[in-house]
C-alpha cells in the first residue's frame, strides 16, 4: 500500500500538468475575441455568449447529426470487419498470409496527400461523391490499423484457447464468436474509441468528398466560426470545441468501462 500512497499525489500532479492546455481550451472559450492572444491570462468577464454563438453560427445540431450518423455507421461496421480480418491473420494460416499482412501494414504508410486525388476520381466515377457511401465501403473493407490491433490481441491469446473448442467440433466462426470475442472486450473497446474518434475528428475526407450541406461538424468547426472574410473567431471556435468533444468524452467514458480483465485468459493461465 506504500506505493499506492506515493502514486496518488504523483498522478494528480501529472494529470494537472498534462491537462493545462486542455484547461486552456475551456478558459479561452470564455474570452472575448480581443483577449485571445493578449496579455491578459483570464477573461475579464466570462463570455458565455461564445457558446450561444457556437451553436447558432454553425447550425450545430444539424452537422452534429451528420457526424453522428457517419461516425456511428462507420464504427459499427469497421469494428466488426476489422476484428474478423485481424482474427484471420492471427489465428489462421493460408498461402501468402505473411505477404498479405505486410500489405496491410503498408497501407498505413501511404501518405494521404498522394491518394486524395485518385480516391476522389474513383468515387466520382462511381458517382458516390457527396454521399456517405465511401465511408461505408471503407468500413466494409476494414481498417488496416484496427486489423493490426486485433491481430496483436488475438495472437496474444494462448494457443490452447481455440484448439480446445475446435476439438469439440465447433466451426471456425463459432470458435471466433464464442471463445475469442468474449475475451477481447478491451480490444473492441479500444477499436471502437479509435474508429469513432477518427471519423468524428477528420475533416480532410469530408472536405474532399462531401458538400457543404451534408458535411460533418469537424469541417464546420474548422470553418464556420469566422468573419465574412474567412478570418477565424478563435474564442467562439473554442466554445464550439468544448461542445464538440462532449459526445466523444461520453463515448470514451462508457467504452473504457469495457477495458477490464478478460476472465478466460487469466483462468487458463492460472
Amino acid at each position: 500500500m506504500r506505493t499506492h500512497a506515493l502514486r496518488y499525489p504523483a498522478l494528480i500532479l501529472a494529470t494537472a500538468i498534462f491537462s493545462l492546455p486542455t484547461f486552456w481550451v475551456l478558459v479561452t472559450s470564455m474570452k472575448k475575441q480581443s483577449e485571445f492572444a493578449g496579455l491578459r491570462l483570464f477573461p475579464e468577464v466570462p463570455q458565455w455568449v461564445n457558446y450561444q454563438l457556437a451553436v447558432t453560427l454553425a447550425d450545430f445540431g444539424r452537422f452534429a447529426t451528420n457526424s453522428l450518423l457517419l461516425a456511428t455507421s462507420y464504427t459499427v461496421i469497421v469494428v466488426v470487419t476489422s476484428a474478423l480480418v485481424g482474427y484471420g491473420f492471427a489465428r489462421h494460416r493460408g498461402p501468402l498470409r505473411d505477404q498479405l499482412f505486410i500489405v496491410v501494414l503498408a497501407m498505413m504508410m501511404v501518405p494521404n496527400v498522394v491518394l486524395f486525388v485518385p480516391q476522389f476520381v474513383v468515387f466520382a466515377k462511381l458517382e458516390l461523391t457527396n454521399t456517405y457511401w465511401p465511408w461505408i465501403l471503407w468500413a466494409l473493407g476494414a481498417s488496416p490499423l484496427l486489423v493490426f490491433l486485433f491481430r496483436q490481441f488475438f495472437a496474444s491469446f494462448p494457443r490452447e484457447l481455440g484448439d480446445a473448442a475446435e476439438v469439440d467440433g465447433a466451426g471456425p466462426l463459432r470458435v471466433f464468436l464464442q471463445v475469442f470475442v468474449p475475451n477481447a472486450w478491451p480490444a473492441f473497446a479500444a477499436a471502437l474509441i479509435f474508429a469513432y474518434t477518427w471519423v468524428w475528428g477528420d475533416y480532410l475526407y469530408p472536405i474532399l468528398l462531401l458538400n457543404d450541406a451534408n458535411t460533418t461538424l469537424a469541417v464546420k468547426l474548422s470553418t464556420a466560426y469566422a468573419d465574412p472574410h474567412g478570418n477565424p473567431l478563435q474564442t467562439v471556435t473554442m466554445a464550439g470545441v468544448v461542445l464538440y468533444v462532449l459526445p466523444l468524452v461520453i463515448i470514451f467514458f462508457l467504452a473504457q468501462r469495457f477495458i477490464i480483465k478478460g476472465v478466460v485468459t487469466t483462468g487458463l493461465r492460472g
Binding site: H92, G94, R97, V104, P172
Partner: peptide, 10 residues
Amino acid sequence: LTFYAFISPW
C-alpha cells in the same frame, strides 16, 4: 479457405 474467408472483407 477459412483464412481467406476471414480476411475477405479486407
